[in-house]
Design a protein around this nucleic acid. Structure first.
Lengths: 138, 138
DNA sequence: CCGTATCCTCCTCGATACTG
DNA sequence: CAGTATCGAGGAGGATACGG
C-alpha cells in the first residue's frame, strides 16, 4: 500500500466528518448550530457569565421555555457551564466553556454579517419582489 | 451637540442593526441564515455554478421541495443567481452572487467547525448523559 | 430535467400558569 | 429567581404524484 503524504493525511482527518452526508453526525450538529437562538445566546455570553434573567433580557423575545431548552442543549454539547448558586433567591450563572469559546468567532461572525449586510439584502428583496410581481401581469 | 469621534461613528453604523432586538430586521435575517439547508447549499456552490440536480446530489437528503424553497429564498435575498438554459432537456444553473460569496466564509466556517469538533461534542454529550442518568438514581 | 402541487405529519415554538 | 408543565397553533419539512 502506498504511503500517504502529510497533506493527504491531513485531508483525510479533515474529512472524517462530512456534513454533506445525510447520515453523518456532523450534519445533526450543524443543524443544532443552525438554531434560531443558539448564536444569540452564545454571543450574549461572550463578555462573561450571565444569569438566566440577564440572558432573557439580552436575547429579547425568547420565551422561558426556549431559553431553558436551548441552554440545556448547549450545556449537553459542552458549550456552556451551568452554575447554581444556592443563595436566596437562587442564582444561576451560565458561562462559555473553552469549546464554546472556540465556537464564538464563528457564530459571532454570522450575527455580525446579518447586521452588516441587512441593507443590501433588503435591496435585493425589493428588486426580486418587483420583478416577480411584474411577471404576474405579463 | 458634541462632535462624534470616528470610532463612535463606526460604532454607530455597526450597531445600526442589532439582532439581539426582537423587532430588528437583522433578527429575521439571522434566522434565515440559521436554516437547516442554507449553509450546506451555499458551501456546495463555493466551487462554482451547479445545476439543480447536482445540488440535490451534493446536499444529500434534501427533498425537491426544500431545495427549491431554500434556493428561492437565497435568490430573493440576493445570494444566488438562477440561470435557466432552455435546452432540451431544460437546464438550470445556480451560482453565488458577490453578496453570496461574501457570506461564504461565514457559513463555511460553521460547517467546518461542526465537522472539526464533532468528537469533542460527542464526548461532552456522553459525559452529560451519564451524569444526568446518575442523578436519576439518587 | 426541473421543478410545482398537494397532502399530511411531526415538532417546534410561544403563551400561560404554576412551583421549589 | 429560575425554571417546569401543559396546551395549542402553526409552520417546517417529507412523500408522492404530476406538469412544462
Amino acid at each position: 500500500m502506498a504511503t500517504r503524504t502529510v497533506a493527504e493525511q491531513r485531508r483525510q482527518s479533515r474529512e472524517e466528518y462530512d456534513a454533506f452526508l445525510d447520515a453523518c453526525p456532523s450534519r445533526k450538529l450543524l443543524e443544532r448550530l443552525s438554531d434560531k437562538w443558539v448564536s444569540l445566546i452564545l454571543v450574549a455570553l461572550a463578555d462573561g457569565e450571565q444569569r438566566y434573567s440577564e440572558l432573557a433580557r439580552s436575547v429579547a423575545g425568547v420565551s422561558p421555555k426556549m431559553l431553558t431548552q436551548t441552554l440545556r442543549n448547549l450545556e449537553r454539547d459542552g458549550f456552556v457551564i451551568r452554575s447554581i448558586i444556592p443563595t436566596v433567591p437562587i442564582r444561576v450563572d451560565y458561562q462559555l466553556t473553552p469549546l464554546g469559546r472556540s465556537l464564538l468567532p464563528v457564530v459571532s461572525a454570522i450575527k455580525s454579517w446579518a447586521e452588516g449586510h441587512m441593507d443590501e439584502v433588503q435591496v435585493a428583496r425589493d428588486h426580486y419582489d418587483i420583478a416577480t410581481e411584474q411577471n404576474l401581469f405579463r
